[in-house]
């Protein structure tokens, strides 16, 4: 079951929606266009009582993604989880916040664990139950990279979701290969001549996933629920290996106000620093356009991890970050 495409423009003029598809719900929208999160019947895959920090973007992103997958599959989801915040804050003995079948094994092996689950379903001829693997950016782009690449290569029937908050937040905010250049982490402190995380050539996993030519790759953000849910639904319509990377702000690691989590996700995208796009079988098929473009400074200034970037002495770094945004905008046609 997938959502119909939105009505054509002519009709839209008459069927105008006050908040369109930007808010979580909209009583003026036809039911089929409303989000899963707007319904009282959503599965709450992660339920109340979990121990995520105030304003945790990952707790939100995970519930969004899993609830959508649950709806699409008629509640036939098994999830595997890498070690990390999501695992720790949901399942400290004796309480679990998960309402779905869920397993945590290790930090670097979630893709393989998920592949193993999928292999079981295949062996038993179960075609309705689907498997989701989830990990943070460290567990995905660093320690879990090999297993993930193997999963892609075999085209195992797993949707891998990476909740990207740009660092090892669970262990106390260390740098990962997904940490943005210039960002302060506890292993890339703002000291010395080139403060913050070094501007490396980068390890942008969605592009690496695309290089594997797996059926579906997408990036999403917790600020745009309709977009995120659509991508999860799309991903579930494919068989084989799929990869979705969700940008999830981390108040602790980013040095931001908990209340600003959604806003940060939003302006990260609107500044061009977090491109949202989709790719099928290795080819870019769609990008989510920027609605109201904002300068990167607006994004940076809400985060203490970038405080040093905005000092006059580090204007070069600021320029580098601007250039990254511009490159994204061009490469993914975000405007």
């Amino acid at each position: 079951m997938t959502k119909k495409e939105q009505p054509a423009t002519d009709e839209q003029m008459i069927k105008f929606y006050q908040t369109g598809t930007f808010t979580v719900g909209n009583r003026l929208l036809d039911e089929e266009f409303r989000t899963v999160q707007a319904t009282s019947e959503r599965s709450n895959s992660i339920d109340s009582g979990h121990r995520a920090c105030q304003g945790c973007g990952q707790a939100l992103g995970a519930r969004y993604a899993l609830d959508t997958a649950m709806r699409v599959t008629d509640n036939k989801i098994i999830a595997a989880n890498a070690t990390g915040c999501l695992e720790v804050f949901t399942t400290p003995y004796p309480e679990t916040a998960w309402s779905i079948p869920w397993i945590h094994s290790l930090f670097g092996n979630v893709a393989s664990v998920a592949s193993g689950i999928a292999a079981t379903l295949k062996a038993k001829g179960d075609t309705t139950t689907r498997v989701i693997a989830q990990g943070g950016d460290g567990g995905t782009t660093d320690i879990g990279f090999a297993c993930l690449s193997g999963m892609f290569d075999r085209n195992d029937d797993v949707l891998y979701i990476c909740y990207d908050n740009g660092g090892y937040m669970n262990t106390g905010v260390q740098r990962s290969s997904a940490t943005p250049g210039g960002a302060r982490t506890s292993t890339s402190m703002p000291v010395g001549e080139h403060p913050g995380s070094s501007f490396t050539t980068g390890k942008f996993l969605p592009a690496i996933a695309m290089a594997h030519e797996i059926p579906y790759v997408a990036t999403a953000s917790v600020h745009d629920l309709h977009d995120l849910e659509r991508k999860i639904e799309k991903a579930m319509s494919f068989r084989g290996a799929r990869y979705i990377q969700i940008n999830v702000p981390c108040p602790l690691g980013w040095g931001s106000e908990p209340a600003k989590t959604i806003k940060l996700a939003r302006i990260g995208v609107e500044s061009g620093l977090v491109p949202l796009f989709e790719a099928e079988h290795g080819d870019l098929t769609n990008s989510t356009k920027i609605r109201y473009q904002v300068p990167v400074e607006e994004y940076l200034q809400l985060q203490r991890r970038f405080a040093h970037i905005l000092k006059p002495a580090n204007v070069d770094q600021l320029e580098t970050i601007r250039a990254i945004a511009e490159k994204n905008i061009k490469r993914y046609q975000l405007l």
Partner: peptide, 11 residues
């Protein structure tokens, strides 16, 4: 790791 997943899924 694959074994862990498959065994946990009942294989």
């Amino acid at each position: 790791s694959f074994c862990i997943g498959s065994s946990a899924a009942g294989a």
